[in-house]
Amino acid sequence: MLKFFSGLIVLVLLFSFVLVNDKERKKSKDLFNGKDFNGWIKYIGMPHKSLQLSLPKDSLGNYKEPIGSNDFLNIFSVVQEDGEPAIYVSGRVFGTISTDKEYGNYHISLQYKWGEKKYAPRLQLPRDAGLLYHAGDRPMQNRVWPLAQECQIQQDDCGDYWKIHTSMAQIPAQFKDSSWVYAPGSEYVWFGDHVNRPRCNKNPDNEKPQGEWNTVEVYTSGDSSVHVVNGKVVMHLKKLSLSENGIKKPMTKGRIALQSEGAELYYRRIVLEPIQQLPSSLRQLF
């Protein structure tokens, strides 16, 4: 009888474990369905004048207007890469795909891999893109990017912080070799237009070589966030804010956007998990 009850207890515990883990899995959401852009909104910016397109130009040869939501150039498309679905980004024109819903308090994870091609105006610059979070629903001031916080996806700079438009944040950082660098345990420093510090460099560098898949994660909780590259924390931020008529307002939610910024790349495995708070290992950073 004792063996029977012991076995029964083990079965109950195992069943409970399966139920809990199944519940956790159901909380996660694949933002990319592997087939199309359902749940995403495309926005394509102003083409560089070096591209030969049948669109209106001014007297200097510059295109007059952004392309907008009609992605007739297939800047973003769905392909098979390394045996599974991925979002292919040609990079020919700057643009974004943004979620059609806003999110706050979440953990987002994705993988990216660089292609080979680069385009003007970034032919001589590092391959560039970005994961934007807490983003607005439209580009600011006729530009291509919405108001947002950015986890940089740039070759050799993945995980950097970039403010976009009037966004701002506090980061523990030190000024080294003419740039600001993330330094846990240091004094928190404001970054944003109002202090003329738009960028903070990640630390450490944890990217993989050209052509390999990298995993980027962002955790957000309230007005705080953490950037993680290939399993290592490379940046944490607090007091995520925007400036509106000189007044700071907290940024705690928004759309998620992925950039096309002059370089060929692929995105895949884009998964969002709602969280109530940061994991304990990350809360210790603050």
Rank of each mutant, 00 (worst) to 15 (best):
Ser50Arg: 13
Met168Thr: 07
Tyr63Phe: 14
Lys57Thr: 10
Lys42Asp: 05
Pro139Asp: 01
Leu147Asp: 00
Gln170Asp: 12
Tyr88Phe: 15
Tyr63Asp: 05
Thr166Lys: 00
Asp82Pro: 01
Tyr112Gln: 03
Gln152Glu: 15
Ser109Lys: 12
Pro172Trp: 12
His165Met: 05
Thr96Gln: 07
Ile75Val: 13
Arg143Gln: 08
Ile67Trp: 03
Ile153Ala: 04
Gln154Ser: 10
Phe32Tyr: 10
Gly61Cys: 02
Ala86Ile: 05
Lys64Leu: 12
Leu53Tyr: 07
Ile171Ala: 11
Pro146Trp: 00
Gly115Tyr: 00
Cys151Gln: 04
Gly68Tyr: 01
Ser77Asn: 15
Leu132His: 09
Met168Tyr: 04
Asp137Ala: 15
Ser77Asp: 15
Pro126Thr: 12
Asp156Arg: 09
Asp100His: 11
Asn33Asp: 13
Val93Thr: 05
Val93Lys: 02
His134Lys: 08
Pro139Leu: 01
Phe94Cys: 05
Lys35Arg: 10
Ala148Trp: 02
Phe175Glu: 12
Asp58Leu: 01
Tyr119Leu: 05
Tyr106Leu: 13
Ser69Gln: 14
Phe37Trp: 09
Gly159Tyr: 03
Gly95Asn: 07
Val78Arg: 04
Asp157Ile: 02
Asn70Ile: 06
Phe175Ile: 08
Phe32Gly: 04
Tyr43Asn: 11
Met168Asn: 08
Lys113His: 09
Gln141Ile: 01
Pro121His: 12
Gly130Ile: 07
Lys163Asn: 12
Asn38Val: 15
Ala120His: 02
Trp162Val: 07
Gln155Tyr: 15
Asp100Gln: 11
Gln155His: 14
Pro66Phe: 01
Gln149His: 15
Glu102Thr: 15
Met46Ile: 08
Asn62Leu: 11
Gln149Gly: 09
Ile67Glu: 01
Pro47Trp: 01
Ser59Ala: 10
Lys42Glu: 06
Trp162Asp: 06
Ile41Asn: 12
Asp157Val: 00
His107Arg: 06
Phe94Ser: 03
His134Gln: 13
Leu55His: 11
Arg122Phe: 13
Leu73Gly: 10
Asp100Lys: 13
Lys64Ala: 00
Phe32Cys: 05
Ser69Glu: 15
Asp82Glu: 14
Asp137Tyr: 14
Glu150Gly: 09
Gln111Trp: 03
Asp128Ile: 09
Gln111Met: 11
Pro47Gln: 02
Pro56Val: 07
Ala129Val: 05
Lys35Cys: 03
Cys158Tyr: 08
Gly39Met: 13
Thr96Tyr: 05
Gln111Gly: 04
Ile171Phe: 11
Leu51Tyr: 06
Gly136Lys: 02
Lys113Tyr: 09
Phe76Pro: 05
Gln80Asn: 13
Asp71Trp: 11
Asn74Thr: 11
Arg143Lys: 10
Trp162Pro: 00
Pro47Arg: 01
Ile153Asn: 02
Val78Asp: 07
Gln154Asn: 09
Thr166Glu: 04
Arg122Cys: 02
Ala173Tyr: 02
Phe37Lys: 08
Gly115Thr: 01
Ser54Ala: 15
Gly83Gln: 03
Val93Asn: 01
Thr99Met: 10
Asn74Lys: 14
Leu131Asn: 04
Tyr63Met: 10
Tyr103Gln: 06
Asn70Glu: 09
Phe94Ile: 03
Leu53Asn: 06
Leu51Cys: 07
Leu131Ala: 07
His48Arg: 08
Arg143Val: 00
